[in-house]
Amino acid sequence: MRSFPASKWVVPALLLVALAIPLLTDNSYYLNMLIMIFIWTIAVSGMNMIAGYAGQLSLAHAGFFGMGAYTLGLLMAKAQMSFLVSLVMAVALTGIVGAVVGMISLRLKGHYFAIFSLCMGVIISLVIEKWESLTEGVRGLLGIPIPKIGSFEFSTVTSQYYLILFFLVLAMFVNRQIVQSLVGRTFISIRNSEELAEALGINVMQSKILAFVHSTVLAGLAGALYAGYLRFLGPEVASIEHAFEMLLYLLVGGISTLWGPLVGTALVMAMMQLLQSWQDYRMIIFGPILVLIVMFLPHGIMGALARLKMKRQSVLPETIDNENRVIEKGTTDRRLAGGEIDA
């Protein structure tokens, strides 16, 4: 999965372009869209860690996004705390809650985990919506002050753009380091077969919790940045539809690829913007796209590109095939292992 970017110049070039965009245009429409893409990419890259690399499909991430957003919003608006402290607290809180939820839920396997995480997401969003004395419920949380670091105010779109870009780059860098380290390989081995990983002496539970906490931290960070940028929150940020949208971004871009979250989020969000006048038809189009992707392009755009390139170079065609076979075999085995049903 490491084959993109092909040359070592791609990343610095992309970064340079990203840094230069606000200098070239001050059209706040485009900057706003890029900011939203960055924020959701951070959250989706978290989902990618647990669902893509560790193989545990979590649908609670919209909930954690909302939790991060509301923590920052409430601390800044109601407790008058500074932006940085609130940000750290928001990230810490989602991490701690993530650890507790992970300890309970990661004992469950496969579908049980997916369903449990879905319910966790619903619980978080219901709590945000119903706990009106704290969160203002459906009226929405207003009056989040402008984020400030020291004496510098992030009041312009451009300054927010650089702030959020910084965190995006940081998140992607950390993800890259994790994926290329032994820890990342541990995650992948768990995805391929938990039994095998356990037999190799990997502490499966600990690794899964680590992946889950990392992913909730990223979701919480994205949520906190979202709250600091929009400075207005409604309970629908935590709604389960966002979890499904994140899944769509992830699958389009390519699950368990480093660049998939960015590519998928950018592409789908841009398309959704273009189809704005077709608002009502959005999911009529994207629902079937989701189905077609899992049928014909299960590794998304980045996965397909990587495979294509590896084939063209045909350096080691057997390795790709072997890899495929191992992954497929792993999943088949898992199904057989968990395939006992009582009717």
Binding site: L57, F244, L251, F286, G287
Partner: peptide
């Protein structure tokens, strides 16, 4: 499982 989510989004929309 993901395909069923796609179907769900489609039907509701």
């Amino acid at each position: 499982m993901i395909a069923s989510i796609g179907v769900m989004l489609f039907i509701e929309a």
